[in-house]
Design a binder for these strands. Structure first.
Lengths: 220, 220
DNA sequence: TATTCATATTTTGTCGACAATAAGGTGTTT
DNA sequence: AAACACCTTATTGTCGACAAAATATGAATA
């Protein structure tokens, strides 16, 4: 179960903190108290501080010297910035995936499309959260660019998950997303790099526009 | 002089280590020994380890649990990955710069172009290293996207500088770069986002192709 | 000479402690 | 009642120490 915790407390605590922040158990804007967390996890402050330094690199918390560490807050401004970066990076990923993905991996994409379709019919829950992530993760992996994979799956996506969790009650555009996903898989299967990049960028760009317009409503 | 060191040893050591790695004082592939570094800097291992965790997030070192931390090595594979990511992110930056840069900032770009031109005439040294970075940094800053600025200026560019340092004897394509920089500033000044993005991507893409072909020569 | 095994040394991961700074609480003055 | 100053408490930044694991050393064997 503890796949990524590499035997060291720092890693283990890193993951726990990431999860706690991403799904709001530790509230956005709140301060991380070292003594409290150390006691809570039953560890000393050494590895805890190292874990926090790691979270800093993931942009989940920020550090004010001699004051402490606070969880980031995601306002519309931040969300737009995240989605702009995501659009650029995942566009690249889709293009590279069209070049480098193996047929076996493309088959798995098709399976995910089926699940997605089923979700819409059944009105299930899976695809509204995890399923979409699975789909995007698989394409990113298909790029075979290790740096890109790290920056997206192990950095930016924590922020995306955090945002999605905060807005989990809002209904997402699952129907339209399925159509766009299908086009995307098609382009990848045709090994059309440029089209794959364009479609992915448009897909994410539309998601951002959707967020922007919905944000207005909920604000007023 | 110590602008970024925010009063804490961890920050100070981080910067020193970054510089030492980027300009090869600590060799690529070599191991970072905690006791030796701690003694060398005259600090305890606590803040040193936190500084190293930070470098991990910058992709300058990687960590093998219970073995130690090693400096990354940049082979052609890594360089290509870096330049692919750079192309995507800096393309975005250029597009946003065309949208968000103030005239004052654009004027500064013109000044850098003049310096660049002068360099070619004088056969000077400045633009072959720092000048080019200044130019790109300024455009990235012009994007006004804080996340993007951090990912490029404070993360990816350390790797780019490290690579450039390793290949500093090789002559760069300064002449051609000037032409491309001029076009780019033009597009930004015209507020043509799409063109600015395209030109930046092509600029970086060509740099990558240049590297790829030269790498072959030096290998054999 | 090369290889294996046992021992000694170094290094990593973790802990608890201390000083300096920041935060919080109390009482006094206006 | 609000503002200020003072004192107490809590937290951060840093250090040195210890155990377990990994590496290096060297002897013994094939």
């Amino acid at each position: 179960m503890n796949k990524a915790s590499d035997q060291t407390i720092t890693s283990e605590i890193s993951e726990k903190l990431i999860n706690a922040i991403v799904n709001g158990e530790i509230a956005p804007g709140s301060k991380l108290s070292e003594p409290k967390l150390a006691q809570q996890f039953n560890i000393s402050r050494g590895p805890l501080r190292e874990a926090i330094r790691r979270l800093e690199g993931l942009n989940l918390v920020y550090h004010v010297p001699r004051e402490g560490v606070k969880v980031v807050t995601l306002e519309l401004k931040e969300i737009i910035e995240i989605y702009h970066v995501r659009e650029a990076l995942e566009g690249l990923a889709a293009g590279l995936a069209a070049r480098n993905m193996e047929q076996k991996e493309i088959d798995e994409l098709h399976k995910l499309l089926e699940l997605h379709e089923q979700y819409i019919d059944d009105n299930g829950e899976y695809f509204r959260q995890e399923g979409d992530f699975d789909f995007h993760y698989k394409i990113i992996q298909g790029s075979k660019n290790q740096l890109l994979i790290k920056q997206l799956c192990h950095e930016l996506y924590h922020l995306v998950r955090m945002f999605r969790y905060q807005t989990r009650k809002l209904k997402s555009r699952t129907q339209q997303a399925l159509i766009e996903h299908k086009q995307l898989v098609n382009a990848i299967e045709q090994r059309d790099e440029q089209l794959a990049e364009l479609l992915m960028r448009r897909h994410i760009s539309r998601a951002r526009e959707n967020i922007e317009s919905k944000w207005q409503e909920n604000e007023t």
